[in-house]
Design a protein around this nucleic acid. Structure first.
Length: 1109
RNA sequence: GGGCGAUUAGCUCAGCUGGUUAGAGCGCUGCCCUGAUAAGGCAGAGGUCUCUGGUUCGAGUCCAGAAUCGCCCA
């Protein structure tokens, strides 16, 4: 017996039950064992940052990942099932700092780097455990660590990192210190998720950097870069985009007096007052016109096009010159008295000649804002720095890594650059340099992690050279040119990858074409320790290729490092011998860019070094997927770059990108916007299957809106399927049906063969979509199927399940619906793991041979293939359209569905219909007509109109078309013997027109693509009586239900006022409503449910009660 | 500033290589059906297909320009 199923399911409770069942029965482990010898399918998980709980947006990506892994498991393929956590970097540091209440890097160093780094590790373990739990809740099947074990390791690390403990590995217990065990997580002997802080991950990045160095691509650069004063680190080009935000700044206009033109000044505009200390030049555009204006006693120079916007008050133009004529003019700077400025000017630029403030030419100067004269401070801006480099200008870098003024800047020294605007303005007023102050709003870069507005600083950082950009089309490059330039080598790798959506390919190439050298250093604490050793005495740079290499080169400190993970501060203890002079060298203090950590995983997690043969079996991976905004220059890029350097091979064959998740109001989800939904809340209110369905219904290359309303829509779709399932179970229990005993499918009615064919088609279509990474296509196929199953198969077949006198037909119906539900459950399994298993388990409950989870079954397309009958599906489509047309006609004619009609006529679009008699019988019953007559020519019933088929005749007729169409509309048509048609003097062949029909009196007609339906709207008394009988039957049924009777309760029935014409039908009515022959009148004693119904022939009073056994 | 994409019903979106009457789902209104019932069916209202020009017998669709939005880059 099937377990009874509520029509109002509690999906969430059901999900928890299944999670428990899968856990108890080790379902996932058994799936892995079952596929262990299958062909390989290699999926590589893009690491999720283990720094916070999972958000609902992670649910989207993780549903794709789980879906494709599960699908390939149903194909019997062997997989690694390894989730990844991204562990190192600033984002973790920022949170740990916040927890500790630390303000800046000095605070961290005072706190102690070792303790700080340990806390970073603990935070990662905390959230890895949390995200593991959440992922399991989502139904995401991976080789998960036990979250409690992760927390145990975390707590032991907090207590004493050197204590020894044991964890359960793949082949038995593994014992080590807590610190080293944590560093070994995810490795072959321990299993579980990979962690990018692992020893192996870090070690392989060292190898990659050593390889870059060996080829001469690693270098130390000197550049002006965006700098976060709070984090004390520079931002690479990769990190800049997310950080632009609107910000209010002072728009400050100042006078800079000209040395050789007494009384005259340049007017210069800036939004960054703090950079004025470092002014070395004023730039003009040589071709623009500049004017001298008089305002009171002032004579001011500025761009002609900026007069109106830049000046305050009346002015008079007294002179005009081109920018080129201004170049070379000397002026007095805003802060000439500062010792640091004097020192820099005395030293001059690279030439060593003492320097003075001077007007320079720069084509980038414009008149859109400011004064057309631009303040240049090479120590404070990226473009200024480049320009200064070109012109040999001195560089005055005013701030330290915390954004505080260095010594030598007078009263500013020691103050924060972010907070000196007022002081600078006061200084300008005191020295007569001030002209005007506004407030402007503009896009300004902010730190993408902590939100602090960025400053610009000139600093030393380490870069990987991405190679020359050649000014010629790629296809004209020679092999030598490509071999010289890494970026083109990466492009060749990109060519070999399938990008979904395909514009991803262009995006990645675009990025590769434009990218600067990759800045890989960060002046921070928690992350990859860059293995770079720069000798202070001979300048030689040594790059250590791994832990063993470090050991071999160490001349001091190895013992203090040994037993620790390769992180600061422990690794910094090691001193190596310089590969140039042999002298002692220490590591540079920098840590690495986080994308190095994630980029190496196609190597580190597949055991590139430990077991190259095994690596080769999984590499290149078949599939990766991630949200694409940002990733073209982050994860995708770093994997491509690293794999190109190491092997010049593509790390993955197919990449599938999806867009961004927004809240239902179309805005990004933010706690502060009040539109955020937490993953846990979503999971426990809507259920994760509903969430997964919502995601998989969305177009991946479009942004998705997530919220309770869209979830309700998704849920309603699933409820339709659930209702069908619940119907099946209800009647199977009621009639005691159990599988077996039905005729073979080929001998079942057309309706049954049709839905079985649809089921087979679904498996095949959805399988093709999923093999092609098209989740949406598969989802749409399932949606269409559910609709067919519910609104066509079941609606028309209902009676076959309830009181069916024909046991063979009933068995066919049950067996068919059972097979259909089982089929769709198996197809849905990768998308809806809970709902599908719940249905599957109940439906197979009596099948001792069935696997004990839908997830242990194989993809059903082969198994169902023989049931496919496309001819029948096409014919059913025609039958369905006929029914829809009759419904439209009934509705238009005010004829209720219960009112039988005498007959209808049907003209079929093709010559005939497959399974004609069976399908016409279906139509007849469904639309409640007594007879269907097939007609070849409906001319006797309708008036015909001709519709020329424009796509067919357009090219041939051209300009004659308007006349032809007008004639067709006017009905000015000659229909010829051979079926051709003459309109406005033009003859159209039969296949160039469609003949449409309109009704003659006494009938209604409708048509659709060659299908014509006509109904007879004349009602006889007999037909009316029959309609009344059905109306009465419905009223009794309704009363039964209101009275709370069970489906199979028999009743005693009393009727009063039954019209005479209805009398003969009463026996049938009584049988349908499970009543004894009805008594007349109203019963004397009570206990009856009473009601009435209005029939054409009069009002009938009804009373009924359950019959006592 | 450059590149890519988008703009279609109140909302979310389809609309293939041009075809005259532009669709779906949700929402709204009315009707119907109903022992699957927190479902189902039929119909209605709701559209200057962002705008302006052009090509064409014919443009939501092709071309050019503009506006707005998004993404990528500078």
């Amino acid at each position: 017996m099937f377990r009874s199923v509520s029509p109002h399911p509690d999906f969430v409770a059901q999900e928890y039950e299944l999670l428990e069942r899968w856990r108890e029965r080790r379902t996932f482990a058994r799936l892995r064992a079952q596929n262990a010898s299958g062909p390989r399918w290699s999926f590589l998980d893009g690491p999720i940052t283990a720094n916070n709980p999972m958000g609902v947006h992670h649910g989207w990506g993780r549903t794709y990942k789980d879906l494709f892994c599960r699908y390939h498991a149903m194909l019997g393929e062997h997989q690694r099932w390894q989730n990844g956590f991204d562990c190192q970097g600033l984002w973790v540091e920022v949170n740990v700092e916040k927890d500790l209440g630390l303000q800046n890097k000095r605070d961290i160093e005072a706190f102690g780097i070792a303790a700080f780094v340990n806390l970073c590790k603990q935070r990662v373990l905390t959230y890895a455990a949390r995200q593991t739990e959440q992922s399991i809740r989502l139904g995401y099947w991976m080789d998960w660590n036990d979250p409690d074990e992760l927390r145990r390791l975390r707590d032991m690390l907090a207590e004493d990192a050197t204590q020894v403990t044991t964890i359960q590995g793949v082949d038995g217990p593994v014992t080590d210190t807590v610190e080293m065990l944590i560093g070994r997580l995810g490795m072959g002997d321990i299993g579980g998720s990979y962690f990018t802080f692992s020893n192996e991950n870090n070690d392989l990045i060292w190898g990659f950097l050593a390889e870059c160095h060996r080829r001469g691509w690693l270098y130390k650069g000197h550049d002006s870069m965006p700098w976060c004063a709070r984090c004390g680190t520079g931002m690479s080009q990769h990190e800049m985009t997310e950080g632009y935000r609107d910000r209010e700044d002072p728009g400050l206009t100042i006078r800079l007096p000209l040395v050789d033109r007494p009384g005259e000044s340049l007017l210069v505009w800036t939004t960054t007052p703090w950079t004025l200390t470092s002014n070395v030049a004023a730039a003009v555009e040589p071709r623009l016109r500049y004017v001298k204006v008089r305002q009171g006693n002032d004579l001011l120079w500025l761009g002609r096009g900026t007069l109106k916007s830049a000046l305050v008050g009346p002015f008079e133009i007294v002179e005009e010159k081109t920018g080129a004529e201004l170049v070379g003019w000397r002026y007095e700077g805003p802060y000439d008295a500062l010792p640091s400025v004097q020192a820099a000017f005395a030293a001059g630029g690279p030439s060593g000649v003492p320097y003075e403030h001077v007007v320079i030419a720069w084509e980038e100067v414009g008149e859109e804002e400011g004064t057309g004269i631009v303040h240049i401070a090479p120590g404070c801006g990226a473009e200024d720095f480049q320009l200064g480099k070109k012109l040999g200008l001195p560089v005055i870098g005013p701030i330290d890594e915390s954004g505080l003024y260095l010594a030598g800047f007078g009263s500013l020294s020691g103050q924060s650059a972010a907070a000196v605007a007022d002081q600078v303005i006061a200084h300008l007023r005191d020295t007569g340099r001030f002209y005007r102050l506004e407030t402007i709003t503009h896009r300004y870069p902010h730190c993408w992690r902590c939100g602090t507005p960025l400053l610009f600083r000139v600093v030393d950082e380490w870069f990987i050279n991405m190679g020359e950009v050649y000014d010629q089309p790629r296809e004209t490059l020679t092999t030598e040119q490509v071999d010289r330039s890494l970026r083109y080598q990466i492009m060749e790798v990109v060519d070999r990858i399938r990008w979904i959506p395909d514009f991803g390919y262009e995006r990645e190439l675009d990025w590769l074409h434009n990218m600067h050298d990759w800045m890989i250093s960060k002046k921070r604490y928690w992350g990859l320790a860059l293995p770079i050793y720069e000798c202070a005495s001979c300048g030689t740079v040594t790059v250590v290729s791994g832990r063993d290499d470090l050991h071999a080169r160490a001349i001091d400190g190895w013992a203090r490092f040994d037993g620790h993970t390769p992180h600061r501060p422990w690794v910094d203890e090691v001193v190596i011998g310089c590969s140039g002079c042999g002298g002692p060298v220490r590591r540079i203090p920098d840590v690495g860019n986080v994308w190095l950590d994630a980029g190496i995983v196609p190597y580190s997690t597949l055991h590139f070094r430990e077991d190259p043969d095994e690596w080769a079996r999984w590499f290149p991976v078949d599939f990766v997927t991630e949200s694409f905004p940002g990733q073209f220059r982050n994860w995708f890029y770093s994997m491509l770059a690293m794999s190109t350097v190491l092997r010049r091979e593509e790390p993955f064959k197919t990449i599938f990108g999806y867009a961004t998740l927004f809240a239902e109001d179309g805005r990004p989800m933010h706690k502060s916007s009040g539109n955020a939904i937490e993953f846990d809340e979503a999971a426990d209110r809507m259920g994760v299957d509903v969430m997964r369905w919502l995601y998989m219904r969305a177009r991946p290359d479009d942004n998705i809106l997530f919220g309770w309303h869209v979830a309700d829509e998704a849920r309603r779709e699933l409820l339709v399927l659930w209702n069908v399932y619940s119907f099946f179970v209800t009647y199977a229990r009621l009639t005691g049906w159990s599988p077996g005993g039905a005729p073979p499918p080929a001998e079942r009615p057309a309706m049954d063969r049709w839905i079985l064919s649809r089921t087979a088609g679904l498996a095949s279509t959805a399988g093709a979509c999923l093999s092609d990474y098209d989740a949406l296509g598969a989802t749409r196929a399932i949606e269409g199927y559910i609709d067919d199953l519910s609104t066509w198969y079941l609606r028309l077949s209902r009676k076959r399940f309830s009181r069916n006198q024909d046991p063979v037909d009933r068995a066919s119906a049950f067996a068919t619906l059972h097979a259909a539900l089982l089929g769709v459950a198996r197809v849905m399994a990768p998308i809806l793991p809970f709902l599908s298993d719940s249905m599957y388990l109940n439906l197979t409950d009596m099948d001792g041979d069935a696997p004990d989870s839908v997830h242990l079954t194989r993809w059903p397309s082969d198994e169902l293939g023989d049931l496919r009958d496309e001819r029948l599906e096409g014919a059913m489509g025609t039958a369905r359209r006929s029914v829809e047309l009759v419904r439209t006609l009934r509705s238009a004619g005010g004829l209720k569905g219960r009112q039988p009609l005498a007959r209808m006529w049907l003209a079929l679009p093709g010559a005939d219909l497959a399974e004609r008699d069976a399908l016409l019988a279906l139509v007849r019953d469904e639309v409640n007509v007594k007879a269907i007559e097939l007609i070849g020519d409906e001319s006797g019933l309708v008036e015909r109109r001709v519709k020329p088929l424009l796509p067919r005749i357009g090219k041939r007729l051209g300009a004659a078309i308007p006349a032809v169409m007008a004639a067709a509309r006017a009905g000015d048509v000659v229909i010829n013997e051979d079926g051709s048609v003459t309109l406005a003097g033009v003859t159209l062949a039969p296949d160039e027109v469609e003949i449409q029909a309109s009704p003659r009196p006494g009938t209604q007609v409708a048509h659709d693509e060659g299908l014509v339906v006509v109904i007879d709207t004349e009602l006889t008394d007999a037909l009316r009586a029959e309609g009344d009988a059905r109306e009465l039957q419905r009223a009794v049924q309704e009363l039964r239900r209101e009275a709370g009777l069970a489906l199979d309760d028999r009743i005693e029935l009393w009727l009063a006022g039954v019209p005479e014409a209805v009398g003969p039908h009463l026996v049938d009515v009584a049988e349908e409503v499970l009543a004894d022959p009805p008594s007349e009148g109203t019963p004397a004693d009570g206990g009856f449910a009473v009601g009435s119904v209005q029939l054409i022939g009069g009002t009938v009073e009804i009373a009924l009660r359950a019959k006592r056994a």
